[in-house]
Design a protein around this nucleic acid. Structure first.
Lengths: 227, 227
DNA sequence: TCAACAGTGTGACGTATATCGCAACCGAGT
DNA sequence: ACTCGGTTGCGATATACGTCACACTGTTGA
């Protein structure tokens, strides 16, 4: 239980809250458990709940009319998603699917309202996080236009490393839990080209490929390749 | 003067304000006049001011290391920009350049703070508008991955039509004031391909090309081509 | 133990689009 | 009236990447 408080407090959204507030929040939160591959909500669903990841990983995906998919991102513990429907009440524009077994805290507009009025920091924090997200999304967009697929793959891996990387004595282990297909959807390319890019990196000794993970061996060169 | 109040009040950000508030706002606002091609701020500049366009058009651009550019968007009267630095105090991540002679209202964090605390609606409106922007940006990103250049051009024209279009008896006049080069940067393609796409549309009789404008003759077909 | 299947690795081929090159046009000065 | 920089139009060529095809591996589970 305490760990849940811990993770919740680490979430940027709630870092302004004190002990007492967090306790109040806990009571209005509902916990959701998802198994790997299970979907929390689908594009087009109604829903105004915001979720904070307590443990596990969740991917946000969009599906084109012809069925092709596109990953908006992969989120880990203490990250949140679903806020958009909270302030702009429309159907969800992305689906949320667990990439690993996950536990989430969900809370609705009504649960959040008291905090928004009594703790202005919460609102500001929300604005700040949306602003940061918007910046990041604009970056990714620029990459789609200017950077080739290997470059985007490198960038994506480095970002995943920031989030999920664990330093080991043989390199930086990034257990992203994504298939190459998903990785491809994340960078907006075909599975095959991503595979070839990875193979090329491995050949050069910049990384080692493992099942749903990579070990970065030469972060510096990856970084240079990325831009 | 009254028209300025008018435009300000039309801005989503301030639509919750009454007569009195708007007057108060007016006093803390500073007016900026820009000539065509003049830049308001550059990527990397410090600055925490938000701008509302009173008249004219402004483009937001990003420049890659090699000098290539990318338009994030073109904004018209009553639209705002620059809010990101307001809540996430970092250097600007885009440059703002006037596409036509323009008049802007600028206000800083300090000018806005009183409204944020006394009128919770303003904060919510801001959240809502950021949420909407984020959605839109995600849409554009998906298009970059899934839609070919002619499709993206069609989409961009339809969007510009929504913003700047004027119904005439010979079609829907969209005076976007962009060169084909800028249009290309907006859709993330080369000037030449955009030119060819436009020529193709014109050949089919879907539109007529004019100087820094197009006249949409068959919106329905354009819409179909866009998706 | 084997079948079935999801995921991975890699080559051959086609194509959309960038890049290059140049000609025509147009509006704004001088 | 005439240049001249900024546009536009459009063909020729190069290439990165998607698509297709198939073989290989590992894992699950009957």
């Amino acid at each position: 239980m305490d760990e849940i408080n811990e993770v919740l407090r680490k979430a940027p959204l709630f870092e302004a809250l004190d002990e007492e507030d967090t306790a109040a929040l806990r009571s209005s939160v509902n916990e959701v458990r998802l198994g790997r591959g299970q979907t929390l909500f689908n594009e087009g669903d109604e829903g105004d709940r915001l979720y904070v990841i307590l443990s596990g990983k969740v991917k946000l995906t969009r599906t084109a009319v012809d069925g092709r998919e596109n990953l908006l991102g992969v989120l880990g513990p203490s990250e949140m998603f679903g806020e958009l429907s909270l302030f702009d009440p429309r159907p969800r524009t992305a689906s949320a699917v667990a990439v690993t077994d996950s536990v989430l805290a969900g809370l609705g507009h009504d649960d959040l309202r008291p905090f928004l009025s009594s703790r202005p920091q919460v609102g500001l924090q929300l604005l700040k996080s949306l602003a940061a997200r918007l910046r990041r999304t604009n970056d990714v967009m620029a990459d789609l236009v200017f950077t080739d697929v290997p470059g985007r793959v490198a960038k994506a891996l480095l970002e995943l490393a920031d989030k999920f990387g664990k330093e080991g004595d043989d390199g930086l282990h990034v257990h992203h839990d994504l298939t190459q297909e998903e990785l491809a959807q994340l960078v907006g390319a075909s599975r095959e080209t991503v595979n070839k890019a990875l193979a090329e990196f491995a050949l050069r000794g910049w990384l080692r490929i493992e099942a749903k993970a990579v070990v970065l061996l030469d972060v510096e060169r990856m970084r240079r390749r990325a831009r």
